[in-house]
């Protein structure tokens, strides 16, 4: 089951510049593991040492924040679009 993952520009260094990647996963937790297999180093940017999603990183599945779904256990189905959105603060 492949889902489309939108990568923020700040993370594209890890994805060799790709802004959208296709990943097989049935939950967000699995998605993070499979992203790590494909793009080593991405996981630590998304989750903390306890495995929790960092507070300044949000995951949206089809435009809905996973914190209002089932968090890391949020189920994914073929064709879903997952957006990873980190807090940014630049303005100048």
């Amino acid at each position: 089951m492949a889902v489309t993952v939108r990568i923020p520009t700040a993370l594209r260094r890890v994805t060799q510049g790709q802004g959208e990647v296709q990943i097989e996963a049935s939950t967000i937790a699995e998605l993070i593991e499979n992203l790590e297999k494909e793009f080593p180093g991405i996981k630590e940017r998304l989750v903390d040492e306890n495995g929790e999603i960092r507070k300044f990183v949000n995951f949206f599945v089809n435009d809905e924040d996973i914190r209002f779904l089932e968090g890391k256990d949020t189920k994914l189905k073929d064709g879903d679009v997952v957006a990873i959105i980190p807090a940014i603060a630049g303005g100048k």
């Binding site: 939108r6 520009t9 802004g19 949206f60 435009d63 809905e64 924040d65 209002f68 957006a83 959105i85």
Partner: peptide, 16 residues
């Protein structure tokens, strides 16, 4: 609203 200049794409996600 998220703007990606490289893809010239605007995406909107819900804030609750």
């Amino acid at each position: 609203l998220i703007f990606d200049a490289l893809g010239t794409e605007f995406n909107v996600v819900k804030l609750r």
